[in-house]
Design a protein around this nucleic acid. Sequence first.
DNA 1: ATGTTC
Length: 474
Amino acid sequence: MEHVREYVQEDPYRFRLDPQDGMRAPGVVFASRELLRDAEKSLEQVVNVATLPGIVGASYAMPDIHWGYGFPIGGVAATDVADGGVISPGGVGFDISCGVRLLAADCDRQALEPALQEVMDGLGRTIPRGAGPGGVWEPDGPGELEAVLEGGSRYAVEQGHGEERDLRRCEDGGAVAAADVGQVSERARERGLVQVGSLGSANHFLEVQQVADVYDEPVAAAFGIVRDQVCVMIHCGSRGLGHQICTDHVRAMDSAMTRYDIQVPDRQLACTPVDSPEGRDYLGAMAAAANYGRANRQLLAQATRRVFQRAAGVRLDLVYDVSHNLAKIETHAVDGEQRRLCVHRKGATRAFPPGHPELPEDLRGVGQPVLIPGTMGTASYVLTGVTGGDAFHSTCHGAGRSLSRHQAARTVGGKQLRARLEADGIAVRPLSPRSLAEETPEAYKDVAAVVEASEGAGLCRKVARLVPVGVVKG
DNA sequence: ATGTTC
């Protein structure tokens, strides 16, 4: 059953898997030869996604591809809404609207130095993290939770948790339209009520960073970043609420699928047509979770601003906020014709090119900021979208795991890792030694190689490299 | 990713 997939190298960073075994489109993997070797097992999932009804173009995989639920993480697939195209919760993932927000400080690393420990202590006390309940803010009841699910960052800002300018630097202006709170189960609401403004665990983090390299000064300037500047990167998602929504709707689709005569090679690819009651229900619930994730990042950013202001007199401006786990209805040219597509991006980041009409005016000339969280010992990147990028304006999303959590914790002790990081000048505020060890940089692929391959494949361009100064982790 | 196995 499991066999090695044959592929053809089309370009230095592009490999094609020709259709076979029920595939309705080819597979296309963007990677270096070396990254592709790490990804061989996951090609099976690229092939499986290519069998989905209505798929157009190809089943794409980004250079940070690894094994996921149904779809690979690092997968991009678009289906044609008017041609029976399906929506699959597995193509978004359990952490709906997981994403990254980057803030830029009005000071450089040297200026922050005297206040750094106080800032880190403040963040360590203030930022809720780890599994379970607890957030920086709690809706005053079920009604206000619905306002969050409908309004996302926009609602948070309206309530005084941020600035109007923030919304112009958020994907979709801070809120996805068409959230359907009626499709958010009671259990999802219960979990969501007590986690607004919380980081979560595993690879989620809040980092104080320093801009170590600028590759494109004019674009970096338009984004609002310069060399040596202090930045804050927040990587988190929609917590238990998004997880519950995924669980609920996978179950609903799994039992509805036969009614649409849809067969998939893996039950985890449960899906129904976008244009079906179950498809619409999921998309409405997914949009609600997306807004929850955005409000979550907005509130964490606001808590971070208060700490920086109080401890260092430093101000933080939003660079951008973008998700890397989401499905969206977008219009793209397919064989010269404009088509409405459902674009699944799972562990893949939207990367609009310069001139895209959905970009705010001050970014229109340079393209969309793409935020790539790395690991706590290495680096993170800021990229920009490019003209002519393939895969429906998408690129990579991070380093991608190479060791399991268990394997990672066996390679190093948490205390030992913390000592090593601090010796490298990185302040660490972990929740526990064990959780820190599970996130050791050695457990991830080389994020620089992932970014290199993404740029080499023509999906994006490098703008800046950020290195960690202080790490807050669940 | 996740009240880390309903």
